[in-house]
C-alpha cells in the first residue's frame, strides 16, 4: 500500500511550503508556497481516501475550489498593493508593526 509513504511525502511537501513562507519575502512566491501546502494536504486526503472512502476526494474538490477563489482574491490584492507601493516585497508592507 502507498498510504504510509504518501502521508510522509505529504508532510515533507507541507514542511517545504512552510519553510518557503518563512524565508521568502516576495508576496507572489508566498502565495505559491501556500498553494504547495494546500497540495500537500490534498495528497493526504487522497491517500486516506484509499482506506476511508470517497469523502476525502470530495474534500479535495472543495479545497481546490477554495484555493482557486483564494488565488483570485489574493492576486487581486497583490495587484492593488503593487499599484500602491510599486513593490510586492513584504518588507515594505509592514503597517501592522507594533
Amino acid at each position: 500500500m502507498l498510504l504510509g509513504p504518501s502521508l510522509v511525502l505529504s508532510a515533507i511537501l507541507f514542511a517545504i511550503g512552510v519553510i518557503g513562507v518563512m524565508i521568502r519575502r516576495n508576496a507572489i512566491v508566498l502565495f505559491m508556497c501556500v498553494e504547495l501546502m494546500l497540495n500537500a494536504v490534498n495528497l493526504s486526503f487522497v491517500a486516506l481516501s484509499t482506506a476511508h472512502g470517497f469523502g476525502g476526494q470530495v474534500m479535495v474538490f472543495f479545497v481546490m475550489t477554495v484555493a482557486a477563489a483564494e488565488a483570485a482574491v489574493g492576486l487581486a490584492i497583490i495587484l492593488a498593493i503593487f499599484r500602491h507601493t510599486r513593490s510586492v516585497d513584504l518588507k515594505n508592507i509592514n503597517l501592522l508593526q507594533g
Partner: peptide, 13 residues
C-alpha cells in the same frame, strides 16, 4: 510584545 509585532509576515509564521 511590540518587538514581536514586527510587521514581518515571516516572523509571524
Amino acid at each position: 510584545g511590540g518587538r514581536l509585532q514586527s510587521g514581518q509576515l515571516g516572523l509571524y509564521v
